Amino acid sequence: MDISLTLERRDAASAGDALRGRLSSIADDKSMLRAAAELTRDLNPPSAAVYWTDLLLSAGIGYAALALAMTLGSVGWAVVASVVAVLALYRAGSFIHEVTHIRHASLPGFRFGWNVIAGVPLLVPSFMYEGVHNLHHARTRYGTIEDPEYLPLASMKPWTLPLFILTSILAPFALIVRYGVLTPLSLVVPGMHRVLVERYSSLSINPAFRRRLPEGEAARLWWMLEGACSVWAVTLIALVATGIFPLRMVAIALAITSGVYVLNQIRTLVAHLWDNHEGDTMSVTAQYLDTVNVPPPAFLPVLWAPVGLRYHALHHLLPGLPYHSLAEAHRRLSKALGTESPYHTASYPGLPGLVARLVRSTMGKRG
């Protein structure tokens, strides 16, 4: 049985690679899309108990481990605490993805709670993703120059990959400057606020992306969250400058938060195959084939692709499905759709193979 499954996956993967060579010409597989919608209707309601419990436990463990890492005398235990802090805070921070997709009426107070617990402390308020990530899911924007979260990485130069990772190491410093220095300056420097909104207020990877100024309720929420982040960043700067926050503890905290952003950047590298080299518009099925699932039996994706991100391709089929329903949705679709369905071609065994594939692509070697 194991052998047959392996062969089926290998054959499906080969078929998928053939299709991906012409992504822009792939029509939608209506049977797959229909099955995805019909078989998962009962999975749409989010569970407040699951969301709040997961967020509070992740953040609680993360902050406790962070405090231990900064105060423990033993280097060995401090390293262990640091690793736990990175993984737990990364999981808590990853809920920004859910905040962007859920209907707020179905989870009252969760967006506010997430911002208080993780968004503001980590200096990544929800407005940095809301109004941006939805463009990535737009049928006519995905993979194009108008997609804030897409670059044709598979056809770019090999040095772009390490640079892509290295930039995330500096993220904590950049965010402190963004909110602790530039936000206060934007109150007195004409035109600076517009520049901050357009170019430095998005969790995007496309350098050509410029976001619009917020309006109405979104603008009011933006100002509230930006103000809170600015107060927090200025406080951190003052605590360091006055010596209240010792440099050793500062270095540990910065290293841990850098680890969170690096881990997220690595996950971003393998979230897609980045094969839309020409930047053409694509069908939903083509977008699915350009995106990655890393389902069980692999265990490590629980750590590096938390909060449902291991089912990223499935998420592109069903962006409104809550993260805790994705595993069951994948089980149902895997069982209902035959091996000839393109659904099976988006599943991969793990991180090493995906990274290796991307590296080979940047070196001009497909596979």
Rank of each mutant, 00 (worst) to 15 (best):
Q265E: 10
R139A: 15
S126H: 07
V120A: 05
E340A: 09
R212A: 14
G16Q: 04
W114E: 12
P45W: 03
D29Q: 09
S230N: 11
L309I: 04
P295G: 00
G131P: 04
A138P: 06
Y129F: 11
V294L: 01
I169H: 10
V302K: 14
T160A: 11
D11Q: 01
A67N: 12
A78E: 05
E38V: 07
L333G: 04
V124E: 09
G191W: 01
A238K: 04
L239A: 13
Y51I: 09
M156I: 03
V355M: 09
T167K: 12
R210S: 08
V80R: 02
E328Q: 12
A88C: 09
R331L: 07
V284P: 10
A18K: 02
A49D: 14
V195E: 01
L57T: 11
C229A: 14
W304G: 08
A138W: 10
V359P: 08
T345N: 06
I3M: 04
T242D: 13
G109Y: 06
L33K: 02
A208V: 02
H137V: 06
G131R: 11
P121E: 11
D280H: 13
N134S: 12
L89M: 10
S258N: 06
Y323A: 08
A37D: 15
L39A: 08
S347M: 00
T183H: 14
L318P: 07
E146G: 14
V116F: 12
A27F: 03
S361R: 15
L300M: 12
R141Y: 13
S334E: 09
Y343K: 01
I96E: 14
R20S: 02
D147A: 04
K335S: 13
S202T: 13
L303S: 10
S58V: 00
K365V: 14
P158N: 03
A241K: 04
L351W: 07
G109F: 00
A154L: 07
K157D: 13
A85V: 00
L239T: 13
V284K: 15
T100R: 06
S47L: 04
S31V: 08
P295W: 00
R22N: 15
V84N: 08
V240P: 02
A13P: 00
L135H: 12
